[in-house]
Nucleic acid binder design. Structure first.
Length: 423
RNA sequence: GUGGGUAUAGCUCAGUCCGGUUAGAGCGCCAGGUUGUGGCCCUGGAGGUCGGGGGUUCAAGUCCCCUUACUCACCCCA
């Protein structure tokens, strides 16, 4: 064993997975930027108070926070999610509304790792602040759905629900608490403990023992105000119009206290692990105000990068991008020609790699093969010092001797073109 | 935080039940066969304090205890 390893719940995203991650956020950025969302990069840690508002009764706040005191005596926490940070940023900078932003980056929760759950985990997401229009709910939900589709995923189930307004929600929670309390003796120990902290979450119990009490529980939809009801109806209507398949899940309550009205979750039916929720979100109309800003409507979602990629693996879609270079230079003289050629070709916009350490031709050709290059350019004694060079196609083994001035044209005839992006 | 499983080469794993010379395989890596040519094949090589610590024993990868990490599940969540 090496002296040092990654800390529990963290890991190295190694090549070629890291390239896949980058492409993942590229696809996401394109999806949401085309819909008018702008990138925001909040800090990875904030005053603990920012995250307290996620809910005093939630595990995320009570036991999973990565918090510490800094050298200035401030009580700091690594962000467990980014919605609260975005709301804080809104309250701090007061941008014009509706404010549509997207983000991507790591979050931190101190919990035990398992499949699809890490202490440092990445999310991509969007938030919209400052509008109550049900059409924005539809847009947000659609964009998440559309992104999964762009990745190539087809086994995603979208579940939606409405938690009602603050007063509806409170009336429902009270009714629910009364219902479960009357059946407390039939509930599992865990559910009884959950009941004290947050009756809503008892609905989430997966234990058989709790099934009967959950199934006979009062229904949230019976507690919705007229406003909340019509808002939700508009959202469902919009989704239908956009041909987004969804199921209304009356028990979808989500983990954070701030949700109001619309909530939704994307579940991968291709994942067999317990962590099959690949993304989720909802409306959080009171959050900005709780953080000290003006009363502001808000809605957004966060998608788990790790879990979504697991779902991609399970469906065999969205592979790591091809990392191969165009050209590999083999120089069996002294490496000077390799140095010059790779430099020149890279400046022209080709991707080029070469061997080092003056290895044998066999060794360098093996390296060329592994690089995935379309062609190898071979420089031996005969071709040294600006003479012609041998260009060998690595797929067909055809090779030609060609002068250096004709090299670029020849590469072009093979379908290799200089990249127009220059750094 | 609670419970189960696992830990032997860079990777995937035999070997542990029933203790006994220098701990193996496949893949990968390096070199050679092929003194100017990759993939296929053949040959050779490098690479291990058997996760760590303690104990039992003439003898421990193997048995016992402790510990750490990984992993799966619960809880919770993305």
């Amino acid at each position: 064993m090496p002296t040092f390893q990654t800390s529990p719940g963290t890991r190295d995203i190694m090549p070629p997975d890291a390239a896949r991650w980058r492409r993942f956020s590229d696809v996401f950025a394109r999806t949401v930027e085309d819909a008018g969302y702008a990138c925001i990069i909040p800090p990875m840690f904030e005053d603990l108070g920012v995250f307290r508002r996620l809910g005093e009764a939630t595990d995320v706040v009570t036991k999973e926070m990565y918090d510490f005191e800094d050298k200035g005596g401030r009580h700091i926490a690594l962000r467990p999610e980014q919605t609260a940070s975005v709301c804080r940023a809104f309250a701090q900078h007061r941008p014009a509304t509706p404010w549509k932003v997207w983000y991507s980056g790591p979050n931190f929760r101190y919990e035990k790792a398992q499949a699809g759950r890490y202490r440092q985990f990445d999310q991509v997401g969007i938030e919209v602040l400052g509008t109550d229009d049900p059409d924005i709910d539809v847009e947000v939900i659609f964009l998440g759905w559309d992104f999964y589709r762009r990745l190539g995923l087809s086994n995603i189930t979208l579940m939606v629900n409405s938690l009602g307004d603050t007063t509806d929600r409170q009336r429902y929670v009270d009714a629910l608490a009364a219902h479960f309390a009357s059946r407390a003796s039939t509930l599992s120990e865990e559910a009884q403990r959950t009941l004290e902290k947050n009756p809503l979450r008892v609905l989430d119990s997966k234990r058989d023992q709790d099934k009967a009490a959950v199934e006979s529980a009062p229904l949230l939809k019976d507690f919705l105000s007229e406003d909340a009801r019509s808002h939700f109806a508009r959202v469902c209507e919009g989704l239908k119009e956009l041909d987004v398949p969804f199921v209304v899940n009356d028990r979808l309550v989500r983990g954070l206290d701030y949700y109001r009205r619309t909530t939704f979750e994307y579940v991968s039916t291709a994942l067999e692990s317990a962590q099959n929720a690949v993304g989720g979100g909802g409306r959080y109309d009171g959050l900005v105000e709780e953080i000290g800003g003006p009363a502001t409507h808000g809605i957004g979602f966060a998608l788990g990068v790790d879990r979504t990629l697991l779902a991609c693996d399970a469906e065999g879609v969205f592979p790591a991008p091809d990392a191969s270079v165009d050209v590999f230079i083999v120089d069996v003289v002294d490496g000077r020609q390799a140095r010059a050629l790779t430099h020149d070709l890279r400046r022209l916009g080709f991707s080029a790699d070469r061997a080092f350490d003056g290895r044998s031709m066999k060794s360098q050709m093996k390296a060329a093969d592994r690089s995935g290059a379309k062609v190898a350019i071979i420089v031996g004694e005969d071709e040294a010092s600006s003479g012609p060079c041998v260009v060998r196609r690595l797929d067909s083994s055809d090779q030609v001797v060609i002068s250096r001035v004709d090299l670029v044209d020849y590469l072009g005839s093979l379908g290799l073109t200089p990249s127009t992006e220059t750094a």
